[in-house]
Computed example of a mutant assay.
Amino acid sequence: METKFTETQRFTQWWLWVILIGVLLIPIYGIYKQMFLGEPFGDNPTSNIGLIVFFVTILGLVIGFRLIKLHTTVDAKGISFDFLPFSSKEILWSEVLTAEVIDYGFVGGYGVRLFTNYGTVYNIKGRIGLHVVLKSGDEFCLGTQKPDELKMLLNKLTILEV
């Protein structure tokens, strides 16, 4: 077995994309109805510029969800992760007090969750992650969809240190 774990996660939940695309269809329909058919969109219609601004905002949100990814690497040097575009860290094993795969439960949603019982939680989906406590007292948790593979690597790295 190789002494390296890598994982890249993206928002691929079908229900999330149904919601995002559904919300995106609202301003598209409004623009079509108001600008192309000449009928007001709603009981108190906004301006055409307002509809376009709404569309661009929602489109930016959809594109943002598409671009977000959590890339985790664990190897003999330490742990590194990129939660693009929000955070990026590299931690050497010499800075780590404990590292274990845990079920952190529901932490209020996906993305970056601050001030949880596990420090900052970075997750894309699920409730399993690598909980890391640093010697400084800081802690964080990285969501994973490959807990067994990560556990095996952590066990192997522990054996190599002895």
Rank of each mutant, 00 (worst) to 15 (best):
M1W: 06
K4N: 11
E7W: 10
Q9K: 12
R10N: 12
R10A: 12
R10L: 07
Q13R: 08
W14E: 02
W14I: 15
W14N: 09
L16N: 02
I19D: 05
I19G: 13
I21Q: 06
I26V: 15
G30P: 03
Y32K: 10
Y32F: 15
K33V: 15
Q34T: 05
G38Q: 01
G38M: 04
E39G: 00
D43E: 11
S47W: 03
I49M: 10
I49T: 14
G50N: 02
G50I: 05
L51P: 07
I52Y: 12
V53W: 02
V53I: 14
T57R: 00
L59H: 07
G60E: 06
L61I: 14
L61F: 11
V62A: 05
G64W: 10
F65D: 01
R66D: 00
R66K: 07
R66L: 13
L67E: 03
L67Y: 14
K69L: 02
L70G: 08
H71T: 11
H71D: 02
H71P: 00
T72G: 03
T73K: 06
K77G: 11
K77I: 04
G78N: 04
I79V: 15
F81H: 11
D82H: 11
L84T: 15
S88R: 13
K89D: 11
K89I: 06
L92E: 15
V96K: 01
L97Q: 15
E100I: 04
G105V: 07
V107E: 08
L114S: 11
F115A: 12
F115H: 14
N117V: 02
N117P: 12
G119N: 08
T120H: 07
V121S: 07
N123S: 12
K125S: 15
G126A: 11
I128C: 00
I128G: 00
G129W: 03
G129S: 04
G129V: 00
L130F: 09
H131N: 08
V133P: 00
L134F: 04
L142F: 08
L142W: 02
T144N: 09
Q145W: 02
K146C: 01
E149L: 13
E149N: 09
L150F: 09
M152Y: 07
L153M: 06
L153T: 03
L154Q: 07
N155L: 08
E161W: 03
